[in-house]
Design a protein around this nucleic acid. Structure first.
Length: 203
DNA sequence: AAATACGATACGCTCCTCAG
DNA sequence: CTGAGGAGCGTATCGTATTT
């Protein structure tokens, strides 16, 4: 694949009218905003991942043609996060969902909506070694158009007196699915033990 | 009519097993 | 030993049904 020196793949399929430059600026925005709130990660990591997804939405909303839904309550919790021009019920090809995660491949969701997904895969580096001044680093961005068939249902055994997460949909064979959908990959990060690591440093 | 309860939706992580 | 994925676990908000 054709990655430039910064780590961007210039040949990947992107949603209509979304450009590599949008993604690059969004990455910078997310890292900056998230760094300010990194304490939240240690408080409750899952919530922090939600924030990363939200920052992704904010960034793309302001610097790309993809806009949030105009009804704030709908935008807040309905699919998709963004659509081309902010359209109400966009066709899947113009729907864009933003997700933040630390996992190297897997992607879970609570619904198997078809549409474009942009996944901000980040790590927390409190010592700010990887990127100067940034304790949150997005080390890979995946962009993929997922159809309903790309999702599998993952049931839940949650029950009274036992708790548990609600049921989930997961992307089938995510490593295969996303390996050809990498829009950006930090040049110095490699996967080691299923974990992003500095290529030539001690972890 | 107002308050409360509950299900559906939204967003996730980490442990541990299992296969290669 | 390693990586991938299943299963157990977490939170917030909203709409509607139920109760008071």
């Amino acid at each position: 694949m054709a990655f430039d020196s910064e780590g961007f793949n210039r040949q990947i399929a992107l949603p209509p009218e979304l450009k590599v430059s949008h993604i690059r600026k969004a990455v910078e925005y997310i890292e900056r905003e998230a760094t300010d709130l990194v304490e939240v990660y240690f408080e409750q990591a899952n919530v922090f991942s939600g924030l990363v997804g939200i920052f992704g939405v904010r960034a793309l909303h302001s610097l790309s043609p993809y806009k949030k839904h105009k009804h704030p309550d709908v935008a807040q919790q309905r699919f998709p996060d963004l659509s081309l021009g902010g359209k109400l019920n966009p066709p899947p090809k113009q729907a864009l969902e933003s997700k933040g995660t630390t996992r190297p491949w897997a992607l879970q969701s609570h619904y198997n909506h078809p549409g474009w997904y942009i996944v901000w895969r980040y790590l927390v580096d409190p010592a700010k070694i990887i990127k100067a001044g940034k304790s949150v680093v997005i080390w890979r961005v995946d962009v993929a158009f997922l159809r309903q068939e790309d999702w599998k249902y993952e049931g839940s055994k949650a029950a009274e007196g036992r708790g548990g997460r609600t049921h989930t949909f997961g992307v089938k064979q995510p490593a295969d699915r996303f390996s050809s959908a990498i829009a950006y990959c930090h040049p110095k990060i490699v996967l080691r033990q299923s974990r992003p690591t500095l290529a030539n440093g001690v972890a």
